[in-house]
Structure formats: C-alpha cells, structure tokens
Write a protein that binds this DNA or RNA. Structure first.
Lengths: 145, 145
DNA sequence: CCATAATTGAACTTGATTTTCAATATCATA
DNA sequence: TATGATATTGAAAATCAAGTTCAATTATGG
C-alpha cells in the first residue's frame, strides 16, 4: 500500500507531473478497494471523500495509475473497462461468475506454459494474455438449487 | 453456409419474427466474411449491396445472429465488439497481433482440460471462456527488424 | 511571494451501440 | 389476392463509457 504511494510519487516526479490532493484521494480509494472495479465505481468511492472531484479527474488519474504500473485495466464481456491492483500483484487469470458477478483470480503455471508454447508454435512472440473463464460459482450453484 | 441460412430461418420462424431482404443481405455479408470483424465493417460490406440499409438494422440483425447461434461476439482489447462465425465453427482461442491486428485462431485440448480442472477446483461450473494471447506475429517481427 | 506551467471541474465531444417513432413491409387469414 | 395486425425499417435522437477543451485554480522551484 505505502509502497504503491511511493511508486506513484516517483512516477509523477519523473514525469514532471504534480502531486495533488485529488490524485492522493483517488489513489487511496483505489488502493482501498478489493477486486475489479469500473471507473464509475472508483468515482463513487472518491465522491464520498470529496464530492468536488469530477469524472474527468478520476479517468485521468486512473490512466496515470496504469502508466505507473499500479493499476491494470481488463475487459470482461461487457464493453466496460475494469481495473485491478497491479503493483505487488502478479499476473493471473479470472473466473467470472455469470450470476453474481464475482471474480476469482487464478494462476496455473502449467496453463501459462502451454499458452506460451502454443503461441510460439504459430510464430507469435507472446507479450501478455487474458483468460477469463465464465461460469457459476459455488455459492450461486447452491442458492439456485 | 446454406445450413446457417436454414438455421436463421428456423430461428426467425420459431420466434415469430419475419424474413426480410435486409436480414438476408446482412446474413449473406456476414457469412461471406472471414475472421473477426466489427459491426462497422459488416455495415460497410452491407452498404455495397444495398446502401439504404442503416446501422441500426445491422446492429439489430447481428444481435439476432448471435441469438440464433450463428455469430459470436468477442471483445479483444479495444472497447469494440467483434463478431466471428459460430455455426459450424467450434470453440477456439485467439492470438492477436498488437502490431497489425491480425487474429489467429488456436485450439489446444490440453489447455482446455487444464482450464476446466482449475475452474472446478475453485467450485466453479465453467460455461465458456475466452483466452486472448496478445503478441507480435511472425510477419511483423520480420518487418520491424 | 511570484511566475510558470500543470491541474482541475464543468461542459462538451467522440465513438460505439441502442432506442424511438412514424412510415413501410411481411404474412396468416379471409 | 386483398386485408389487417404487427414486425421491421431508416433516420434521428438517446445512451453510455471515455476523452478533450478551456478558463480558473493550484503546486512548485526559485
């Protein structure tokens, strides 16, 4: 958490950008959230702290967080970007419950390796990937039966 | 091809929907295209056949094609839906070149199995998934070096 | 404290997709 | 094959996420 803040300060400094209250509040809100959330959800949290802060500033700051390596954007299957923590949070894939929307993070070295092999077989240099598995989670399965 | 048309007719009939020239033209255009294309690309092809047909009808018909199991929508990493053939075209994953935008389809039973296993380990009932591997294709690698 | 330049919020723009609505076309039935 | 109920269409407007403009404000080095 504190590290992420230091990273962001260093990033701003290195780029000749400024440290502002708004950026602080947005970073805090972001770091305090768990999971995968849209810009709008971040905006709502930020608004509670300081209702003056506008959407534009939230979008602008999220972009900075991505550039700084603190946030990462992903698309699931609506056309809306979600953000998750990146700093101190390695690559992983996602299980998405189509009932309740819950997202579980998974990682399996075997799958990762197989993907790289497959890409290389086709002459591709793999850079990044996203694997989203949509299904029904344990709780929703119980609930609906 | 012809089968897909029959499927669509049956779908329309079953839903009490009507058979129209526009829907015919859009389905033809869709079936005649290879790969993964946006609504706008479909619209352009359709326009050549019949410039009267509007965007709204293209979007509406694509939605029907998806409902009928003839088309499938996927998001890569811009916020724009792409469509691919689904009828007679089994599940597969995608290699996406970040330079030229080319998309290659891949399928690997081992990866599929590993994904199912992983989902089940977490109590998920997997329904579908999408794996997009972003990288640089063979041609682009040669070109840029 | 000042000057410069980055930042902000509000409103506006963009791009993709969806909806509205009046006019038109389809299709089962008479 | 004419009719009428209703699905469909195109054009324009609406929506939704995201990005941009601009005048006013603020951070920061000197």
């Amino acid at each position: 958490m504190e590290n992420a803040k230091r990273i962001f300060d260093a990033f701003l400094c290195a780029k000749g950008l400024r440290h502002t209250d708004q950026r602080d509040i947005i970073l805090d809100a972001f770091l305090g959230m768990e999971g995968h959330f849209s810009a709008e959800e971040i905006y709502r949290i930020v608004s509670e702290k300081n209702p003056e802060i506008g959407y534009a500033t939230v979008y602008r700051t999220i972009k900075l967080l991505c550039d700084a390596g603190i946030a990462r954007g992903i698309y699931f299957d609506d056309g809306r970007m979600r953000y998750e923590h990146k700093y101190g949070h390695g690559h992983h894939d996602h299980l998405v419950c189509i009932r309740c929307g819950k997202v579980i993070e998974i990682f399996d070295p075997q799958i990762e390796k197989a993907q790289d092999r497959l890409a290389k077989e086709k002459g591709f240099v793999p850079i990044r990937h996203q694997l989203n598995i949509f299904g029904v989670c344990k709780e929703c399965r119980k609930r609906n039966k």
